[in-house]
């Protein structure tokens, strides 16, 4: 069931229209584009309020990955004995990318339950509320990339056109996380335990994703066997590795099927996520 948001002054029009399920992925995009004004206000609200009361303000968006990378680098160097001088930069990229992905999953998954009071009184497209969190997180992640500047200066890293691919992969990570969140949001209204499972998977995913380790380390240990195929079921592996390669000017030699698998999974998540969300979100909110 789709909420009709347009106002027609000519004749009586139904408030709700039934659509075939294959229309939902397009209706969702159309809903979001049609509510650009509201979406931009919600994103501005989220950005303005994220660090508003902090003395260091937006500096936290840069400091957070730097501090985390510092801690992880020390711990990892002690445990594994890595002597890679760029290891900290690799961790920063991993932290920024993984944080964006996990925050996009949780913000869109919680969008219905977090705004339920509003949905009980206002006729708003719920897809917009699932989208503002991931967009806010993309903007903050782009800002966080400034924490890599010291590495460019200290290690004389080349500034190449390849860097332009970094925002694309950030967007891709957020898109995949958003799509997974869309799938979870209506289900978590009915079964709150689902959110606990998602939180667990996000935490576990941190260790299963190349945040503290790199694709090279994985390849050296497991090669290209079945472990490699299983590992590529993690939608964050390709984007995180590609971002590292683009920033550090390296090549991890990722197989071409890995890109297809990664993009294919994102598309499947979006198709399922948008269909489940558009079919169930309105009713899920009524029943909370």
């Amino acid at each position: 069931m789709v909420l009709k948001t347009g106002v027609d002054n000519s004749d009586l029009t139904p408030l709700w229209s039934k659509r075939s399920f294959y229309h939902y992925p397009f209706v969702m995009v159309s809903d979001i584009l049609g509510s650009r004004h509201l979406l931009s206000l919600l994103v501005k609200r989220d950005i303005a309020t994220r660090y508003r009361r902090a003395y260091l303000g937006f500096s936290w968006a840069i400091l957070e990955p730097l501090l985390l990378a510092g801690v992880y680098s020390v711990v990892f160097t002690i445990l594994v004995g890595s002597s890679d001088p760029l290891y900290a930069a690799k961790v920063i990229i991993g932290v920024i990318g993984w944080s964006l992905f996990s925050r996009s999953v949780t913000s869109s998954a919680k969008s219905l339950t977090n705004s339920v009071n509003l949905f009980q009184f206002a006729r708003v497209p719920k897809s917009v509320f699932a989208t503002n969190g991931p967009i806010t997180n993309i903007i903050l992640a782009l800002f966080s990339l400034l924490s890599l500047i010291p590495f460019f200066i200290i290690h004389d890293l080349p500034i190449t056109i390849n860097l332009l691919i970094v925002p694309f992969w950030l967007f891709f990570l957020s898109f995949t996380g958003w799509s997974i969140g869309l799938l979870v949001a209506p289900i978590s209204c009915k079964i709150p335990d689902v959110m606990n499972i998602v939180n667990f998977l996000v935490r576990a995913g941190f260790f299963l994703s190349p945040v503290m380790w790199t694709y090279d380390m994985f390849s050296r240990r497991f090669g290209g066997g079945w472990q490699s195929i299983v590992a590529h079921l993690n939608p964050a592996i390709v984007p995180l590795t590609e971002m590292r390669d683009a920033v550090l000017g390296t090549s991890s030699g990722m197989p071409s099927w890995a890109y297809g698998m990664c993009i294919g999974m994102a598309v499947i998540f979006y198709l399922f996520g948008s269909i489940v969300f558009m079919r169930s979100a309105h009713k899920a909110v009524v029943n909370i």
Partner: peptide
């Protein structure tokens, strides 16, 4: 705000 389980609501 709430969709009906069945029936139609039309407005102008």
């Amino acid at each position: 705000v709430f969709p009906p389980n069945s029936g139609t609501i039309s407005s102008k």
